[in-house]
Write a protein that binds this DNA or RNA. Sequence first.
RNA 1: GGGGGUGUAGCUCAGUUGGUUUAGAGCGCUAGCCUGUCACGCUAGAGGUCGCGGGUUCAAGUCCCGUCACCCUCGCCA
Length: 595
Amino acid sequence: MTCGDLRAQHDQQVVTLNGWIDVVRDHGGLLFFDVRDRFGLTQVVLDPAEVAPALVEEARQLRPEWVVAVTGRVRRRPGASVNAARPTGEVEVVATALQILNPSKTPPFLPTDEGGVNEELRLRYRYLDLRRPALRESLELRHRFFLEIRRVLDREKYIEVETPMLTRMTPEGSREYLVPSRVHPGRFYALPQSPQVFKQLIMVGGMDRYFQIARCLRDEDLRADRQPEFTQLDLELSFGDEEDVFAIIEKVLADSIKAVFHRDVPTPFPRLKHRDAMLRYGVDKPDLRFGLEIQELSEIWRGAGFRVVDDVLAAGGVVRGLCVKGGAARLSRKDIDALTPFVQGFGAKGVAFLKQENGQLAGPLSKFTDAGRIAALNAACGFGDGDLLLIVADRERVVCKSLGELRNDLARKLDLLPKDGRLAFSWIVDFPMFDWSDDEQRYVAAHHPFTTPLETYPGQMEKEPGKVTARAYDLVMNGWELGSGSVRIHQREMQARVFEFLGITPDEAREKFGFFLEAFEYGAPPHCGLGLGLERTLALLLDRPNIRDLVAFPKTASASDLMNGAPSEVPLKQLKELHLQVVDVEPAGGGPKKA
RNA sequence: GGGGGUGUAGCUCAGUUGGUUUAGAGCGCUAGCCUGUCACGCUAGAGGUCGCGGGUUCAAGUCCCGUCACCCUCGCCA
C-alpha cells in the first residue's frame, strides 16, 4: 500500500504506510501528519481519546522528513473535513502503531518549498531535491518515454545493443574524456562521444536494425542544453536511405510522445534545405513556430549611396534584413539602439533601420531610400506603413548569425511565440559536405568523414568541394537541434577519396581507423542512421529551460558534481599505478596562492 | 579563453548618496498554548565572519582591485 492509494472504498481496512513525514499539524489534542512517498500523500490522525498516550507522545516528536511506518485503520473523513484537493482527501488513517524508521536533521530545504531554491544548494543535496515533485515528475516521464521508445522500436524489429564505454580515441570530432590504462603504460582509453563507430560495425555485423539508448560523453564547454554526459537515442539501419530513417524516427517520436505526453505530433516533418534555412532563418536549427523570415536585400540597396552597404557588397558581402510588421510603433528608438550591441556580439558592425509611419520615412536608411526602393521593399517583404526594417550588412556568415539571433530575440520581445505548446519539428537536409576551416586552412568534414557525399558530377569533390552536399540531416524542434545523422559511406573507394581529400593519408587512415576500414572490405551493407538527444527532447516537451532537471545527478557548467565533489584529486599511489604525473597544477581550493 | 549576471540568517529576499541605533522581513528552527487541521493557528525565543582576500576612508553589506562558486552566453560542441 502506497501513500497514493487509499480511497473511500478502503474504509475500515487496516493498512501500513511507509514514507516520509511531509508536515505535522499538532493541535495539542488532535494531531495530524501527512505521510509522503513517490506515489502520494495520506493524512494520518491521532486522537488522544482513542489511542494510548505513549503513541501520541511519540508522534509529537515527529518532524518533517523523518522516515516512518504507520499502521492504522482507514476511515472516511467526517463530512466537512474532506479535502477535495487531494486524491486521498476522502480518507485518513487512524494510527494504531508508529515506528520511526529514521529521524532526519532539519534539511536545508524541504520538498514542500514551493518557491525557487538556489540551484547550487539543490545540486549539493540532490537526494533531497529528488523528493520534490518537479524532479520526481521529470524522472518518471523520462522513464516512461524511454520505455515507450523501446517498445516502438522493438515492434519495428530493432534490437538494442550495448557498446563499450572504454573505447579508442577517434580523430576529429569533439574533445574526449580519457581513461589511463594501468596495464599499458602511456596508453589511454577514450570514453565514447557517441557509439558512431560501433553502430556502423553492428551493421557490418548483420544486425540490420540497431538502436541504443546510449550514454555519450564530450569534454566540451557546457550550456543549459549540454551536459558532459548525456543520453542519445542512437539508431542505425541497413539497406535503406534517408527516407527510412525519417520514417522510423517520426514514428518513434509521434507514438511515444502521444503515449506519454498525450500530444499530437503531425508527420511527416517538413524538410528544409540547409541553404534555405540559413537564408530564411540565419541558423541551421530554425524555430519554425513563428515567421519573421530574413529577407535578401542586397540588390535593393546596391548603389543607393549608403557607404557601409556599398563597401560590404564590393567586398562580396550581403545585405539582409528583418521586416517587423507593425514594428515602427512597437520598438522604441531605445529598443532599436540596443540591437546594435546585441549583433556586435555576433561580429556585426551594427543594425541600420528604416521606419515608415504615416507615410513618413525615418531612420538612418531613410535618406538612401527613394520611391523605387520603397516599391521594391514592398514587393520583397511587404514593407509598408507602420513597419520597421532592420538590416545588417556584412560577410554572409556574420549576417546569418546576427539576423538569426536577432530573429529569435525579437520573437521573445514581441511575443511572437505561440502559446499552444506547438512542437515544430523539421528535418534540415542537404548540408554541405565540407566546411572551410580558417584555423586549419583546409576543408574539414561538416558532419563526419564517414558521410556519403552527393556529387552532381563525378569528381566534384576535388573540383568544387564547397558545393558538394552531404547525405546528412539534422532533426530540429522549436529552435533546438535534437539530432543528426547521415547515410554512411559503405564502399572502400569512396571512403578513400574522402580521406584523401581531407588530407588523411592512407598510412594515417590505417593507423587511426584501420580496423574500421578493414571491416568495410568484408561486405558492409549500405546503411544510415541518426543520434537523437533525449534530454533535449524531454526538456522541450516539458518546457524546461535546461536539461539538468532531466538528469538525476547533473553536473554544473564547469563539469563539477556539487554533491560528490567530482572531479577529485587522487592519491599519488594511484597516479603512479597509472603511469601518470600531474604537472603545472595550481594549489587546490580558494585560498590565496603562494607567491 | 571572452562577455554579462548572482553571492546578506538554515531557505527566499530587502537593505537609499558610504554613517543612527544592536543589519531587517517572510518561511523554517526551538519552546509554550491549542480537539478537525490539511501551507493549521496563537505567543515567545534563538539564529549573521554581509562568498573569500586586499585596498580607499574618520567610517564599507554599500566604493575600488583581485579571487572563488554558481547561472546565462560567444568561441567550442564532426
